[in-house]
Amino acid sequence: MSHPRYAAAAALALASIVLLSGCTAPQDAFTDLRGDRERRDELPQLAEYAYDDVEVSTSRFVGEHDGTSLWLALGREDSGICIVADAGEDAWVVGCGGETIKIGGIAGTYEVLPDAATAPEGATKVSENVYAW
């Protein structure tokens, strides 16, 4: 195999590992998703398309920050972990990603990290896995 082809193959293999490792978010990596669901864990009613990538049956309410209510849930298929931030009216955002995700918008800025991760600098801890700015 020529050097350029070898380099391209190695880069492709590395990219695949990085992408695949970010696509799974096992429920046991997030303390906030453990335990039995309660009534408050139900997601709020948002736009019809808001939960297209969210496995709604796994949602858990994780707290509030500056008037915004927050939930975590597993994503559908390869969507990893999802966060729902709802500040009422039309001020909401839903984001899904790998094992870590950061979202921002009118409802605030939030980051989701698995249990073993280091807390982001300057952030306020909302729950075991969610941080806010």
Rank of each mutant, 00 (worst) to 15 (best):
D36V: 13
A117M: 08
L14T: 12
G97N: 08
M1F: 12
A13M: 11
W92C: 13
D86L: 01
W71I: 02
R34Y: 04
R37G: 07
Y6Q: 09
T124C: 01
D52G: 15
L20A: 10
K125R: 15
V126Q: 06
D90C: 05
T118E: 15
A47P: 03
L33A: 03
A29V: 02
V94G: 07
V56G: 06
A91G: 00
I106C: 01
A9C: 02
A107M: 00
D36F: 02
R37D: 05
G97K: 06
K102D: 05
F61M: 03
T24A: 07
A25I: 12
R34Q: 15
W71M: 03
E111C: 10
D86W: 05
L113E: 08
M1Q: 03
L14Q: 00
R37H: 05
Q45L: 05
G63S: 09
G108R: 02
W133R: 00
D36S: 12
R37L: 11
L113K: 14
T100N: 06
Y51Q: 09
P114Y: 04
Y131N: 04
L33M: 10
G104C: 01
R76N: 13
P114N: 12
C96N: 12
T109F: 00
S21E: 13
A29Y: 00
R39E: 15
T68E: 02
V62S: 02
L19D: 04
Q45H: 08
A11E: 02
A25K: 12
T124L: 11
